[in-house]
């Protein structure tokens, strides 16, 4: 009984907001003005939920860092941690395949192992020593979030590309002490006015 989980983990997966696709280097792919507005709306939404967030973990890519910078302003005192594990990539060859997106095979080996490691590292039931329910935010990327959702629900991971996520949207997973997983929301962006919703 000493090694049984007792607490529930709430995982909030946030897709970064709209960014400038023209830059060739990651550092040049910064948020657009609309992207900054979206991040403000996402931060405001998270703050309005009235829960005490334990931490923000974010991808080390520029668009995730900038989204986190803005969200953080709405959640004062919440620590943030950067990780390379959550960087965008090609998690697994999608089924059915798509014609306009064909990464090299080696990309799936590199990114797939890393994104699977991100899933195992961050998505699990609470440790036995965790006494209270936790609320954690992960600011990352569409492919990473879609793969994590498939894996957490034990759905075939190659189906990840059948889902679509808006910029700044909130995906909420609940992991019970029993290990049961519930997807409470997938890509919620209903808190944004329709003319500010994008999927770039």
């Amino acid at each position: 009984d000493n090694f049984k989980a007792r607490a529930t983990r709430h995982i909030f997966l946030i897709r970064h907001s709209q960014y400038n696709l023209d830059g060739s280097l990651d550092k040049d792919r910064t948020l657009t003005e609309l992207g900054r507005e979206q991040a403000e709306l996402t931060g405001g939404r998270l703050a309005s939920l009235g829960v005490k967030f334990d931490k923000i973990v974010h991808s080390s890519m520029t668009r995730a860092i900038e989204t986190t910078d803005i969200i953080s302003k709405h959640l004062p005192g919440v620590n943030r941690v950067s990780t390379d594990l959550l960087r965008e990539g090609a998690p697994i060859e999608p089924d059915p395949p798509v014609s306009d997106w064909k990464p090299e095979a080696r990309q799936y080996y590199e990114d797939g192992a890393r994104i699977e490691a991100a899933f195992r590292n961050f998505i699990h039931r609470a440790d036995a020593k965790q006494e209270e329910d936790s609320y954690e935010i992960f600011v990352c990327h569409a492919n990473v979030i879609r793969y994590i959702v498939c894996r957490a629900l034990q759905f075939p991971p190659e189906g990840w590309l059948r889902m679509s996520l808006n910029n700044g949207s909130i995906t909420h997973l609940v992991i019970r002490p029993s290990g049961r997983v519930a997807l409470r929301t997938l890509g919620d962006s209903g808190f944004m006015p329709p003319d500010k919703i994008t999927r770039t």
Binding site: I92, A117, R120, N121, R125, Q154, G179
Partner: peptide
């Protein structure tokens, strides 16, 4: 191919492999 896809819920899904 990672993960079970049999449709049967694996209640020890996060205990079978090291975390990273």
């Amino acid at each position: 191919r990672p993960g079970p896809t049999s449709g049967v819920w694996d209640s020890n899904w996060d205990k079978r492999e090291p975390r990273s």
